[in-house]
Design a protein around this nucleic acid. Sequence first.
DNA 1: GAAATGGAGTGAAACATTACACGGACAGTA
DNA 2: TACTGTCCGTGTAATGTTTCACTCCATTTC
Lengths: 330, 330
Amino acid sequence: MSESKSVPTMKDVAREAGVALGTVSKVVNGLPVGEDYRLRVEKAIEKLNYRVSSYARGLRSNKTYTIAVMVPNLISPFFSKLVNCINHELSARKYRMLFYATDYDPAQEQELVHLAEQQKVDGIICLSYNPHLQVSPDVPLVSIDRYFGAQIPCVASDNYGGGRLAAEKLVENGCKNLAFLRIGSKLTNEPNKRKDGFIAGCEALDVPYTLKIIDDGTPYTAFFEFLEEHFHDGKLDFDGIFCVTDSMAHVIRGALTQHMGLRVPEDVQIIGFDGVRHFGDLEYTCSTIVQPLEAIAANCVELVLSPRGENAPALICLPVSYGWGGTTRE
Amino acid sequence: MSESKSVPTMKDVAREAGVALGTVSKVVNGLPVGEDYRLRVEKAIEKLNYRVSSYARGLRSNKTYTIAVMVPNLISPFFSKLVNCINHELSARKYRMLFYATDYDPAQEQELVHLAEQQKVDGIICLSYNPHLQVSPDVPLVSIDRYFGAQIPCVASDNYGGGRLAAEKLVENGCKNLAFLRIGSKLTNEPNKRKDGFIAGCEALDVPYTLKIIDDGTPYTAFFEFLEEHFHDGKLDFDGIFCVTDSMAHVIRGALTQHMGLRVPEDVQIIGFDGVRHFGDLEYTCSTIVQPLEAIAANCVELVLSPRGENAPALICLPVSYGWGGTTRE
DNA sequence: GAAATGGAGTGAAACATTACACGGACAGTA
DNA sequence: TACTGTCCGTGTAATGTTTCACTCCATTTC
């Protein structure tokens, strides 16, 4: 009743219960133990308020039940909801999540992968902006939205199909002249295929389109100038705009309604991509291509936890859908 | 040249470099070692691609350089930006972040605290919705927005001052009749003080006000009904509304502009709270009380890492500001 | 009834690191 | 030369688990 000095260990429990160390270990791990012994040990654990040290356990068994998750940041709603879903999936399987923000910095990303390896995590889930990421073959890594090659499984939405769907939906809703707006990195990654899908959709439907693509770092005003150029006599050259993300769709919509006096969707329709909404949809007048965040998360976790399958698919492509609201729980 | 089977250990490095184990440890930890020895060891580390096992290190030294961070989820922009800031602060100090989502569930929260203790983290930062949280005195815990008592440091914005500031700013901008809308938990916590501050502000300025407070789980339509009740002949009884969060402000604004045909801010002004914006501010016509997210994060990390100060403050209250934009980097 | 079988408790080894006591070498001082 | 002190490499103990070979006892089988 007076040994409250330091954190109790398995040895303390064993002594308290009058059993051997191995027996306590069995009780803790749910291995078969005589009923009377189990009770004695459980009582001792309760009394001492004992908790297993996951560090000792991890050291000994080389299994840490920890997955490192790396995305650029938690500011973008897409990233934070994605991480939220991954976390749900992991904790349902009794795994812990070590989080790293990469800030879009390839060097930092590389360093964090090393850190995670040092941490002896059981796996890494990574949305990477470093096309030359070096990764030790010892720790399984799953990539989101970037295909590194057959050794590293990659999970992504059907970006091509989504781009195509965006074009189709705009036309279906009566648009006759489309535009595609994109800001983003020059790196090749899966989301870039949205453009290709969009173009394919336009050409299949024989609808004219314009592209405006600017690189990361370019000020947003480049878009406003582009829109102004195509604005004559109170009318825009396009009646349908596909923005590469919802967040961009929101900004573009603001520019059109506030500064150019256009009505959305009456004068011009806007469709975004991602399907993440933070606020109510009440006044939301843009549509979107919804990424299946839960499915992406579930596939990532499944892949990172299951031993590197022999004939595992290298690239998993998940179906998107058309909608106004997000699919993730609020 | 052929020992690529398993992960190299310190012993392997020692053998490779022809030195003792302790010497390798010193090199790794930057303790004084002869120049020639250091070089030999570094070369061996390089050659074997050795990384220290943070599990063995954590076991032995009882220091894990890991902080557990618990918030309800990463869906709310306030939570995700907060966690983003905390993560920045932690990684700047070479700490790792173990993330747990509590889903507002007190039982799960309690379980997660136990899990974190088992994980032997160096500390816990927690935005808790469990007023009876049991926490072991062994691991330092810092609470956000909930005061548990003098033993547990609590960090929060000046919610009272913020509520008061909201009232003052509305009046300063010409409002003559105010309303306060809140949805939230019945639990006592710091953000509840926004209401008290608002009331104090109204009474100090001698401005009439109305309160509408609904509990978590109540459908939002309760607010719309409330607004309808105060809507006569195309005019609302109030010309200034203080919403307890930005996210609510956004929804209310949608209801007023889309469904009741009112203009914001011409007919009625809206002020929110938090200062988190995910999209551009272009069309944003509500103001807000900005919480100092970086300061909150910095204080939490500072407190959780520094040994329990003798005369440390139990409740840290950080100044808010009035604004349209958020303060966090985008 | 004796031998085979199997379930379950025991205690020591192993995991990868850090901490520490020890000792050898070398320099400074008298 | 001898004494003292400093610097630093060495090797062992210790950290809290899991694993495994052993042992013991009870039950089954012929």
